[in-house]
Design a protein around this nucleic acid. Sequence first.
DNA 1: CTGTTAGCGCATTCAT
DNA 2: ATGAATGCGCTAACAG
Lengths: 389, 389
Amino acid sequence: MTVTLADVAARARVSPATVSRVLNGNYPVATSTRERVLRAVDDLDYVLNGPASSLAAATSDLIGILVNDIADPFFGIMAGAAQSEIGGPGDGSGRAGGEKLAIVCNTGGTPERELTYLTLLQRQRAAAVVLTGGAVEDPAHQAAVSAKLAKLADAGTRVVLCGRPPLPDGASVLAALAFDNRGGGRRLTEHLISLGHRSIGYAAGPLERTTTRHRLEGHHEAMRAAGLYGDGGGGAAHAGDGDGGAHAGDGGSGSAADGHSARSRTEERLTVHGSYDRGSGYDATVELLRREPGITAVVAANDTVALGAAAAIRDRGLRIPEDVSVAGFDDLPFSVDVVPALTTVRLPLFEAGARAGRLAMGKESPPPGGIATIPAELMVRGSTAAPRR
Amino acid sequence: MTVTLADVAARARVSPATVSRVLNGNYPVATSTRERVLRAVDDLDYVLNGPASSLAAATSDLIGILVNDIADPFFGIMAGAAQSEIGGPGDGSGRAGGEKLAIVCNTGGTPERELTYLTLLQRQRAAAVVLTGGAVEDPAHQAAVSAKLAKLADAGTRVVLCGRPPLPDGASVLAALAFDNRGGGRRLTEHLISLGHRSIGYAAGPLERTTTRHRLEGHHEAMRAAGLYGDGGGGAAHAGDGDGGAHAGDGGSGSAADGHSARSRTEERLTVHGSYDRGSGYDATVELLRREPGITAVVAANDTVALGAAAAIRDRGLRIPEDVSVAGFDDLPFSVDVVPALTTVRLPLFEAGARAGRLAMGKESPPPGGIATIPAELMVRGSTAAPRR
DNA sequence: CTGTTAGCGCATTCAT
DNA sequence: ATGAATGCGCTAACAG
């Protein structure tokens, strides 16, 4: 019923080995023979048996791309870009030559599924794995992921991080492309401060994610530098801890009010954690407004959260930016279209994803030290303005 | 170097077959034996060799999900939902038991890549394939896809269509879940007409896609029924042609003005085609406004296109909805947050994706006849209002 | 319930 | 440049 290599060989009147050689193209074969084989392949409508091929070759042409949330364009853009560098252009006939199969796996942001997918990919003997987006900072999970990645690398799988800070032990990672979340967060808040804002609320993301922490740290840095956290909120906690310092800051559990002594009460009051979605931004903003009715600006964990924040502000009868300024992060495509257009921090998601894809394909050499920090650019638009007198 | 089933068997003092049985769980094994094996697996940190397993079993645990554009939440939501039904919850240890690996493949909407991915999936002996989103109506491509799907089905791969009309020859498809794009489109335009609009522009999607055609047909039906296309634009062209009638209406090439004789000049003037993105909506709306400055409403191919349309309208100094009403399609998450909130047609993307996932897993039985039409719900919000006097 | 025996379809040695 | 033989690691009968 199913056509095999041997069938093709028989029809082309060559040995199976020869067919294998023309199909893989990595061996000299006489042109006339090659043509005969190719014709037989077409005639018989032969499709290579991937599993058999992978078994014999001890490697597959699968490349996994892990994302936290596939419904979020933040990940979709990176994944799409990576995939465009991986999946060949297709030769029209759909015959599928030697291209890799880029597959995206949706972890839902949970550590368990992340590990499960990594194992599944390991099981498939994936040629490469790209991990996108922030990591969860639970030490146990970090260790488990590191161990798993080490095993993957050991088995010949190329590991690339995209939009994710380097691992403490980066040995097994080919390359880590990290966004400058901290710098972007700092510049965004500096912008607000320069506009004259003094009381700025922050609708943060999930507590345990690196992305959340880095953006928040940038924000806090700016606030503290401007003396807006009043009492002794020291800057000592994360001093000199570049985006690359991936050791979990607070280790352990985590309510927002877990008494980190260097954290001022103002700082705590003006920060609310949630998830990276619209509803969370809405709720966080309602809470911020309740705690501190006088805030003149809300910074959101990302653009989607900012959408919810803006809705909450409007529902309170306040205007943007006249009464309250709003800012996001990422600069997703819709951000320029909301009214007023969203001030945000632009991350070159597509470029980063594409680069990660090339790295995974081995088409590009890793940055020095295997680590590259990707700059974030402040985009000032209509949603932020000087606070009213 | 690499641990195999035999190693585990040796350590557990059982035969390889027994190890295989406990790993696959589909065979009775004594509890004590099972535990011994499991312990050996953990001790040795064994990971099943997927290719070898697939080769022997003649089937893999891969399930492919094809999407047109992974950066578009329309697809991301469906894919994520499908994946959530497929990828097991993960057992925490990341040990990865018998779960399937849901992988999403980004075709970019091009027929070639769609075929290439299908071939790649066929090569991998995928357990199932889910095709999401509208199809391209080029007859040659349709035939190629049908043939490929037939081969996949033949090889035991379950084929599910989600948000895509059934194939002319649906034999090889397990189930087709089609959205009621036509009905939704019609009701949306009827809503506008009932509000008093007479001159309504349409920023349509790519000409050759089923989704585009069906939404547009619904729109045209409503317009014609209200006599808004003046001269003899007959309703005969697609009469009684349910969403399921998948034969390419116009066959062949395709400028918008290819002289379909039953199409009125007004109809043509008020319809502009583009792609399913924001920029396209902007451009189309600029063009519509140029052709017919008096239009009081613009209907967009989807919510993203509507975003661009709204931007174009505002850039012209017009207000929404006072001067021009705007409507979208899909009801993506951001649609409720734009200002004014977008009137649109809600498609249950998550539910449909989840159902497709269950179908692909064989966890749910197909609808009668293998075809289900999923209803679309009109969502009236602030972006549409009665035209001004 | 468990062990034994055969391949699954292909990529590679080696020869030639 | 091509053919012949071997084994990748696992599952699926078939016995017992």
